[in-house]
């Protein structure tokens, strides 16, 4: 079924991105686990299984956040599928060091079944679905009937499905996807994300009738009075 990959032997980029896999005892890994716990308890009545991670603009840490969250969910013993839904500038295949010949678009266009395209990673219970060949019409693919079928099929096989998406203010894709997910997470980059842009992003998600689970504040300056400032990695 799935092909196994070695995280430690991936692209030079992944060492930075997958801190939860490389250094699980580090304060940053603990912070990702805190986010995971907060997601789990964000809704008492309904379990959030299909989650989309997005941001208002580019380079705010969506891919890093979603990849590390996927690892932390997998560390709970849950079967997790990380889907690269950024059909403009995909990065998941770089993070996990896999090729991108087949992937999400291949499944949506019904060229290949989900089982044959999903790749297993070195991390137990974590599976990745790369973007696949970049189509000329990403938004149309996401709004299609096959997208609904894909989510239903993925929900049968996995406990959690996490989507890495493009920036909200750049393209319409995240809005389309947000409507089909159980919840959305907005990533903001400390001292870079503008308040007005984030407000617009929030508005777009609300217009898409998406349940906003909350915000992840990324790249925050460590303060001396922060708890993790004292909590050293083993």
């Amino acid at each position: 079924m799935a092909r196994k990959r070695n995280i430690k032997q991936t692209s030079t980029n992944s060492g930075r991105k997958l801190v939860t896999a490389i250094d699980p005892k580090s304060p940053i890994s603990e912070q990702y686990r805190t986010i995971r716990t907060n997601i789990q308890y964000s809704s008492v009545d309904q379990e959030q299984r299909v989650i989309m991670v997005t941001s208002s603009g580019p380079a705010e840490g969506k891919s890093t956040t979603v990849a590390n969250l996927a690892v932390t969910f997998a560390q709970l013993g849950k079967k997790v599928l990380l889907v690269d839904a950024d059909l403009r500038k995909p990065t998941v295949h770089y993070t996990f060091g896999v090729n991108n010949l087949f992937g999400f678009t291949t499944v949506l266009t019904k060229q290949r079944p989900l089982e044959s395209v999903v790749r297993e990673t070195e991390i137990q219970d974590l599976y990745v679905l790369t973007s696949g060949p970049i189509p000329p019409n990403p938004a149309e693919l996401l709004i299609s009937k096959s997208m609904e079928q894909f989510i239903e099929e993925a929900k049968e096989q996995f406990d959690y499905i996490l989507f890495d998406t493009p920036p909200l203010l750049a393209v319409a894709d995240p809005q389309i996807l947000a409507n089909q997910c159980d919840g959305s997470i907005l990533v903001v980059f400390s001292e870079r994300t503008e308040i007005e842009q984030a407000k617009k992003a929030k508005e777009l998600l609300e217009n898409a009738h998406s349940k906003l689970l909350g915000v992840v504040l990324n790249h925050k300056e460590a303060q001396k009075n922060d708890y993790y400032y004292y909590y050293g990695a083993k």
């Binding site: 430690k8 930075r16 925050k220």
Partner: peptide, 19 residues
């Protein structure tokens, strides 16, 4: 919106990546 969590700046050790 609720803040699900904060992620601090990654230390240099993680930023280098591993070959």
């Amino acid at each position: 919106l609720p803040v699900l969590g904060t992620v601090q700046k990654m230390p240099k050790v993680h930023e280098k990546g591993k070959r």
